[in-house]
Design a protein around this nucleic acid. Sequence first.
DNA 1: CTGCTTCTCCTAACACCGTTCGAACTATGG
DNA 2: CCATAGTTCGAACGGTGTTAGGAGAAGCAG
Lengths: 217, 217
Amino acid sequence: MLGEAETDVGSAPVRDRRAEQRDRTREEIVAAAWERCRAEGLAGLSLRDLASAVGMRAPSLYSYFDSKLAIYDAMFAEGCQQFLDEVVDLPRTGETMTDLTTSLRHFVEFCASDHVRHQLLFQRTIPGFEPSPESYAISVQGLEVLGEWFRDLGFDDPADLDLATAVGSGLASQQISNDPGGDRWLRLVDDAVEMLVAHLERKTETQTQARTTRGEP
Amino acid sequence: MLGEAETDVGSAPVRDRRAEQRDRTREEIVAAAWERCRAEGLAGLSLRDLASAVGMRAPSLYSYFDSKLAIYDAMFAEGCQQFLDEVVDLPRTGETMTDLTTSLRHFVEFCASDHVRHQLLFQRTIPGFEPSPESYAISVQGLEVLGEWFRDLGFDDPADLDLATAVGSGLASQQISNDPGGDRWLRLVDDAVEMLVAHLERKTETQTQARTTRGEP
DNA sequence: CTGCTTCTCCTAACACCGTTCGAACTATGG
DNA sequence: CCATAGTTCGAACGGTGTTAGGAGAAGCAG
């Protein structure tokens, strides 16, 4: 990002170095905020602390973020983007059991690997915090990718997806609350997928059976 | 240890009115704390606010509780006691599907009916808060009752209970996070129990089958 | 009743919090 | 070089949980 100026003779594209530096500092602040939250708890973040972690005093942070909640919002967006990036990179086979196992395992591991991020992304815990529309859009996008994948596997009923997300978030929250760092619930993923698939397939089966006996196509 | 002085003749036992009044005030403070938390968020509780809700100033609260966290602890204990009381009162038939549905539905409804209580009891969200041993014991007791019930229904593997609690906490957390006040996940309880039971029975079946083919009893 | 103790409640204050203001400083563009 | 925009910071404001110390009420002994 530094060497590619002057693509041409003389006419150097005027890169806004000011804005670049600003974005870099913003990112540095957010990274330090994650670090502080992991140390002190999500709600234990102190702006004076955070500022000194990046070599500033508290008021200077307000050149980069409107408020403390805006910092949480940037963290929220970053966490959602991480999830989205990871989900679109997951390998897909089209085979129900395999793909469901892949996605569910990834979800539980994503949640369990960073309980602060899980708290910020999936629990409403900070008084007054609400993701901005832009950040929320990323969140929706990530879940939408999962939903599409799920439908591609042949599960059309929205209730099926609701049941699957419940199982996923249940495994994750139990893992985080009762065995942080361990695998007591993580190792149940294969079992859970087997359980889910058997149930969903049995359900669709009895439904189509009911339809055919009623003479529908 | 307070009321049983003067074990003797009719003489009205000298009740420690001081201590009784004190306990009543403590309870009043805790009740007001629930109310304030439901209005301002669990972490949004302010001692000056809480004090004025019971007609005091903030420092007076310290006659009744050692700290703000001690108030959270009293709330935690009360919430756990509510859960325990409700669980032991649930009707039991001994029939697997019926009883599992009863307990799971109760759990999800208990969680969903008070998201502040759910946050305090089941999520680690307040920096520095950790239930006291006495409060934690009530929590363990409640879950132990559920666990015993579960084992009485014939599910011996601890992993089975883990899977069941995961499904319960997943339904609850999804209900609270994504449809507070509604029933989008609540109405999946019957489905979820059916799914669980089918899975657990299929599992025990294949296990006993594997054992008998290996010649074990 | 008077004294004495104990408990309750208060005001004042401390250290910290998020946030705002306004002044100093610095780097950039003309 | 100068003007301007962006950055940093000290000081301060109103809030937080918490502590110290004193005033007043309640209970009990004589």
